[in-house]
Design a protein around this nucleic acid. Structure first.
Length: 275
DNA sequence: CGCGCAACCTGTCTGC
DNA sequence: TGCAGACAGGTTGCGC
């Protein structure tokens, strides 16, 4: 394998990354939050995060998804956004491209990985552990905006700017409502909104606003079905009121001011402990 | 510990 | 045409 941009391996050095991946067989692929996992035959895993503009492309031996494929952003004549490449036994290649250079990759053993994720990621929203109760627990006492709570990966993992907006709309919750302002019915509504938004995104192959493509170079279709995200000025599909854009935590945030009611802050229930 | 914001990068688009 | 400024699928680190 070859690391062409030292930023990709940061804070490690390219040579260390290359040595850890060289000659390995990928025995499984997976995901945790927004981190992509490639498990090696020696028990270690290669972890890749695409951040804003990273792409993974599979170039098949028969030339499918070839370097000149115009669908694949950043892989063109000059290949100037190609940051890493992994040669496969069958003559194919896995490529990582990233115009903005935010994407990162590293190789780690199982224990180190657990530690790494434990300090960064909360519950998987599509797992059975994600319940109204767990949502209630992790949001209790929070004073920051619900939108920021959703973007913070330590509560619920894997929700980004698109799905935060879509989930809040589906739940009928205002992005500026304090995280701890939800009542039980809101916890359940938000849980349902998050799951529905994510599952819709999966069904549609993700959202390709600009240059996102899947490993075969195909765009997603979720962007065609956004309910509020990036739809400032459009009428709400539910009530017709104009969708507005605000900035929350430095991120563009879109919502329907009629459908999404702002909740008032409420005091944290003090845990009553025996003793 | 929670919160808000700047920083990290490059490319694209808008307005003057 | 040029140029400044805003904005973009995310995370981290810092100050308070």
């Amino acid at each position: 394998m070859e690391v062409l941009d030292p930023y990709f391996a940061k804070p490690a050095v390219p040579a260390a990354f290359e040595a850890a991946a060289e000659g390995r067989t990928i025995v499984d692929v997976g995901r945790r939050g927004k981190y992509l996992l490639f498990e090696f035959d020696n028990g270690n895993s290669m972890v890749i995060h695409l951040r804003m503009t990273g792409s993974i492309t599979l170039v098949a031996p028969d030339g499918t998804g070839n370097p000149g494929d115009p669908r694949i952003y950043g892989i063109g004549e000059d290949e100037k956004h190609l940051k890493a490449r992994f040669s496969l036994d069958d003559g194919g290649e896995i490529r990582f491209t990233d115009p903005r250079r935010f994407g990162r990759g590293f190789v780690a053993g199982p224990e180190a990985l657990d530690t790494y994720f434990a300090s960064r990621l909360g519950v998987e929203p599509l797992s059975p552990e994600f319940t109204a109760e767990s949502l209630a627990e992790m949001s209790a006492g929070r004073t920051g905006p619900l939108k920021s709570f959703l973007l913070n990966q330590k509560g619920v993992a894997g929700i980004g700017n698109i799905y935060a907006d879509e989930a809040l709309f589906r739940a009928g919750l205002h992005p500026l409502s304090p995280g701890g302002s939800m009542k039980p019915e809101h916890h359940e509504a938000l849980r349902e909104g998050i799951v529905a938004a994510l599952e819709r995104g999966l069904d549609l192959g993700g959202a390709s606003i600009d240059d996102y493509r899947d490993a075969r170079g195909d765009a997603g279709a979720m962007q065609n079905e956004f309910l509020v995200h990036r739809r400032e000025g459009d009428p709400c599909g539910e009530c017709g009121v104009t969708i507005v854009r605000i900035v929350v935590g430095g991120r563009s945030t879109y919502f329907c001011p009629a459908c999404q009611k702002r909740l008032r802050r409420r005091p944290r229930h003090s845990k009553t402990r025996k003793g």
